[in-house]
């Protein structure tokens, strides 16, 4: 078959051209916060990325600032990694003599994680991903390594791990009864991205097994039947699936009361311990939780305001722990 002349002329006017494949390093497109080191480690081609929700430069004390992950789990894991590998967090004028290591902290969407939760640890070798560790596995590995002996320490470590559920509870409490400000602070969520926010709130409820642990707070009908108009209005104005108000507030108050009863005891236990790996990990986990509550929750939130009012000394101690790195 012959191609008609006018068509052939047309194809000749636009000659076919193949562009060469451009190799693109996906790591380059990420916003990175490298950990600092006193030694030059650049020769090794193994490196890890700790993916967290968001990173913010925070002035912990006048003149002392750090780039911190904005959620307790991310911050605790970053600090534990710093301790294990003799690294320091980015930021702070006093660290000018240090060099940037190849390891870094990266803000990433939680949707990139295999189980929709962050932080995850991505280990790469020559730009090829070798291993992705989810946050549950990071916690299990830390517990297995640091708390193989010492049953009391292990129980306290378990308590500090359950604070993730309290953190999720606090985020939801803020969103439901106050405003979405907390989402901007912790996740840098844009206030105009309505659908993204709805999806985020839906996903937050799955973190730390919140939905499974507090299944009793979810009801299919109670809210709608009691106040149908208000329920319909809320559905239109903001994402509020099926949590009942009164139950939620009461359960949250009980959790907070239990937390503040246990907090001084945990702090005293850690203070009284001799220097060890277990002590350092417990100290880091508690400090990360308190520092995140004070810095990244709105100052009107119950947790943050009570910490500043009644436990200022403990908060100061926590800041000192973070500033060590």
């Amino acid at each position: 078959m012959k191609v008609p002349k006018p068509l052939e002329a047309l194809f000749d006017t636009f000659p076919l051209q193949t562009f060469p494949v451009k190799a693109r390093d996906y790591l380059d497109s990420l916003e990175k916060y490298p950990f600092l080191s006193t030694k030059d480690l650049a020769s090794s081609n193994v490196r890890f990325l700790l993916a967290v929700h968001n990173v913010r430069e925070t002035e912990l004390r006048p003149g002392f600032s750090r780039f911190l992950a904005t959620d307790p789990l991310g911050l605790a894991d970053a600090l534990i990694l710093c301790r294990r590998h003799d690294l320091r967090l980015a930021g702070g004028a006093e660290k000018l003599q240090m060099v940037q290591s190849q390891h870094c902290m990266v803000p990433l969407s939680y949707l990139a994680s295999p189980d929709n939760t962050l932080p995850i640890l991505v280990e790469t070798q020559r730009n090829t991903t070798k291993c992705v560790t989810t946050c549950a596995k990071i916690s299990a590995a830390v517990a297995a390594k640091s708390f193989a002996t010492g049953a009391i320490d292990s129980t306290v470590n378990h308590f500090l791990d359950t604070l993730q559920t309290l953190w999720v509870f606090t985020l939801l409490h803020e969103v439901f009864f106050s405003s979405n400000e907390v989402l901007e602070l912790v996740f840098a969520a844009s206030p105009t991205d309505y659908l993204g926010t709805v999806q985020l709130i839906e996903n937050i409820q799955g973190w730390g097994h919140f939905r499974e642990k507090y299944g009793n707070l979810y009801s299919d009908y109670a809210d709608v039947a009691k106040a149908p108009l208000a329920a319909a209005k809320r559905l239109l104005s903001g994402p509020r699936p099926t949590v009942t108000d009164e139950a939620f507030k009461k359960a949250y108050a009980a959790e907070i009361a239990e937390f503040f009863k246990t907090l001084p005891l945990v702090a005293e236990h850690i203070r009284g311990k001799l220097d060890s790996e277990a002590k350092a990990v417990l100290e880091i986990k508690l400090a990360a939780f308190l520092v995140c509550c004070v810095n990244f929750l709105p100052s009107s939130s119950v947790l943050s305001s009570l910490l500043v009012k009644d436990h200022l000394k403990l908060v100061e101690e926590s800041i000192s722990v973070v500033l060590k790195y």
Binding site: I152, T155, V156, H158, F159, T162, E258, K261, T262, L265, V266, E268, H269
Partner: peptide, 16 residues
């Protein structure tokens, strides 16, 4: 304080 700490954290541990 140690007894109370163990009592409170163990309760949480059992529930979890």
């Amino acid at each position: 304080s140690t007894e109370l700490l163990v009592n409170l954290t163990l309760t949480k541990y059992i529930q979890d």
